[in-house]
Every structure is written in structure tokens, then in C-alpha cells.
Design a protein around this nucleic acid. Structure first.
Lengths: 219, 219
DNA sequence: ATTACTAAGCAGCGAGTAA
DNA sequence: TTTACTCGCTGCTTAGTAA
């Protein structure tokens, strides 16, 4: 949705156009927006075509009301702002399911990790990880997440080798309880490794390439 | 502020650019926005010029962080959405102080009104009304307000004439406790008549033409 | 009064490119 | 690789105007 249409919709909502029909001529709207009557009219026309508003024409002015579709678009925008200011206790990632290299199963199978996961996350991890590839640009969010600390799992020895430090964050994967596991070093991975008490692939009926939403929680 | 700049700023914030510096090249931003590298670069440049973001250039990419000014702009936008969805228990008007025609004093001085005000609003109104002229377009908000009912004050007889029905809403005038009084009929006034236990002009140091914020509360 | 069409003018977009 | 300049061209804006 074009930013200027969203802005128009928002300003209509501020005048009460979600619960009520509001009286507004394109000329008035033009003054409010500091543009021409023609542009204001065109914006309203575009919103109408996109089913964001309904209009009734009288002899004077028009009665405008925001539709469910329009209100949804606004609410969506609102959620983004909530994300920024309020709910900084969560970070939302969108990505695609990819196949791991079988490593996740080996690691999560390690007694050391399994015990830590149970003690610190409160669940027994199903063997293996669900790997979600995020947009490259969203690696900034991983950095954001790291800055909050998270649940640290220390180095330990097993099978004659050292397993490195990892940091976990409680998370939901398409709504299902779980956690994401980040290596302590290497700040810019673009794959989120998720663990969960459930077999996520089966429970959620996921296949490679499916879109997955991972919500990580801070504290 | 141009809507597309606000959108850019919002998306930077979603990547964590308020607390952190984020790594982002104009090319990446272009892909995210589905536009050209040049346009993305220009947007970032504009935000920089408007002091909404700061940038540090390395050999690769740039480190971007949102400034206080930028965060304020976003917070302001956030408040608008809050207004729409959450705090529909208040309606915010902005207007200018105008001189009444001395009528307010006569009316508020009437025993009938004075008693009602005290009983239903919980304060003794200072004689007279503070008149705030709102933008013509905001009369839609008055309609919105009316749709919530408000505190009704019935007709009464005094001095051999009938005083009409009015509807009140508890309100704050530049933060000071008070109420607005709307005639029951005549749906589209553009002047809000405010009453208060205080002499608002004096207490707030207001003069004609000053900008006044009136927040009306629904129940 | 309105809304909104057509057409002209101009701002913003992006290809090419320099640094 | 980057960022961001110039410049031709497209598409948005607005004046004029019809309905």
C-alpha cells in the first residue's frame, strides 16, 4: 500500500471514520493535506478503488467511512509501531524453512545441551533444529536481539571435544513454544536455528520453502 | 514530513535502528523497498538532511542510527494510532482561543446549570466559558464525540424562560480539569465551549489566538 | 456547491557513471 | 564494493473545466 494512501486513511480514522461516516469534501481534505483539490480527490478515489473506504455522495460533500479492509491496514501499521515502542520484549522474524545439514540433530542430541535446554528453557528439546532462513537485511534484528543478552549456555566437554557457548531466546515458531539458539560468536548468521519440545515440522505441517514466523522474546 | 520518509524511518526502526546502529546499504534498502538503489540512497540522504538519522560510512555499507528527532517523529505517529485504536475513550481537539460573546457567563451563571454542573461533573464552574475554535474539518470529531452520549443536562425553567438541553463531556483544557458543553441540537458547531472550576484564561495565561488543546473523555 | 476528467507542466525516478 | 551525482524520461500534480 502506498505510503500517502495509508497517511490519508490514518487521518480519516483520526476524524472518526472507523466507527462513523464523516462528512468531508475533497476541497477540505486538500486544505488539510496542503495540496490541490484534484490530488485530494484522486487519493480518495484510489482508497475507494482499493476498498479501503466507502463513499456516499450527497449534493454537498461526501460521507466517508473506513471499511474492514481499511481498518485492518491501519491496525497492521499500528502493530508495527507497537513493535517499535512497546513490545521491545519481542522481536519478530519472517523467513523460509530450509533444510539443515543434519548438524542440529547431532548437537541437540548432546547430553550437555539437552540438560541445559531443559534446565534453562523448561522443556526437553526434540532432537534436531528447525532452520529458518531470514532475509539478509533482518540480520540487524539478530544483532538487536543479541544486545539484550538472552539465556547463556556455557561451554562443556563431551565425546572428547568442546561444545561452544551458545545463547538462547525463548521464542514461538508459528505460534508453537520453543527457542532459538544462536552461536555466541559469529554475529551475522542469516539462519535461525529453532528448537522446541515438539517436532515442529510435523506438528505445523511444514515443508522446505514455507514461510515461518519466529517471535523471539527478550527475558 | 513526507509519508515515504516516515515509512523509511519506521522500517529502519523495525530493524532496531533506535537503540542500535544498523548496517544497511542503499542497495539492500532498495531491495526491501522494491525500488532502485538511487531512490533508496536519496531517501536516506533526505532523512539525514532532516536530522532524522545519523550515518557513518565504512568501506562497505553504512551504519545508520535514528536520532532523537527521528524517534520523536515516530513516537508522534505512534500516538496517532493509539488515538485511533486504544484510547477511543478520549478525543483530542486542537484549536485557537476566541472571545465569546459574553453569553457563556450568563448561561453558566444560571442556577440550573450551576447545580447540574456541580452534581454531574463534580465541580463548581467558574462563571463564563472558554471558547476554542477548532478547524472546520474537526467538526467530524464533535460528531464522533456526540455518538458516545456524554453527560446530559436536562431542560429547566428560570427567569421566565426555558434553558435548553446540553450535553457535557469531562475534558482537560491544556491539561487543566474541566468539561466541554455542547448544545443538544445543532450538530456542527466549530466552537467548543469549555467550563472549569478555574479561571482558565488566567490560570493558563491564555490570550485570544493562542493554541489550545482540548481532550474530551468519553465516560 | 460538489467530483473528477483531460492535458500540460514539473518533480521524482532510475540508468549511467564518477569517486 | 560502496554512495550519490547528472540527466533524460516517466508519471504524478494541478489548472482548466465539464457535469
Amino acid at each position: 500500500m502506498k505510503p500517502y494512501l495509508l497517511q490519508t486513511l490514518k487521518e480519516l480514522a483520526l476524524l472518526g471514520a472507523i466507527p462513523n461516516k464523516i462528512e468531508l469534501s475533497s476541497h477540505e481534505r486538500a486544505q488539510q493535506l496542503e495540496t490541490s483539490q484534484q490530488t485530494a480527490s484522486r487519493y480518495l478515489l484510489e482508497l475507494d478503488l482499493q476498498q479501503m473506504i466507502t463513499r456516499e455522495f450527497g449534493v454537498k460533500k461526501q460521507l466517508i467511512q473506513i471499511t474492514i479492509t481499511g481498518a485492518d491496514a491501519l491496525e497492521n501499521e499500528y502493530m508495527s509501531y507497537k513493535q517499535i515502542f512497546d513490545l521491545t520484549n519481542k522481536v519478530v522474524f519472517k523467513g523460509k524453512l530450509v533444510s539443515g545439514m543434519g548438524e542440529g540433530k547431532y548437537y541437540t542430541g548432546q547430553k550437555g545441551y539437552a540438560e541445559h535446554f531443559e534446565k534453562q528453557l523448561g522443556f526437553v528439546a526434540y532432537p534436531g533444529t528447525l532452520n529458518v532462513e531470514i532475509e539478509y537485511i533482518e540480520r540487524n534484528k539478530i544483532r538487536l536481539l543479541r544486545s539484550y543478552g538472552g539465556i547463556q549456555i556455557d561451554e562443556f566437554q563431551a565425546e572428547n571435544r568442546t561444545f561452544g557457548n551458545v545463547v538462547c531466546f525463548k521464542a514461538t515458531i508459528n505460534g508453537k513454544e520453543g527457542a532459538i539458539v544462536l552461536p555466541k560468536r559469529s554475529h551475522y548468521a542469516t539462519v535461525l536455528e529453532c528448537i522446541s519440545p515438539y517436532n515442529l515440522r510435523e506438528t505445523l505441517g511444514l515443508h522446505d520453502g514455507d514461510t515461518v514466523e519466529v517471535v523471539a522474546y527478550i527475558q
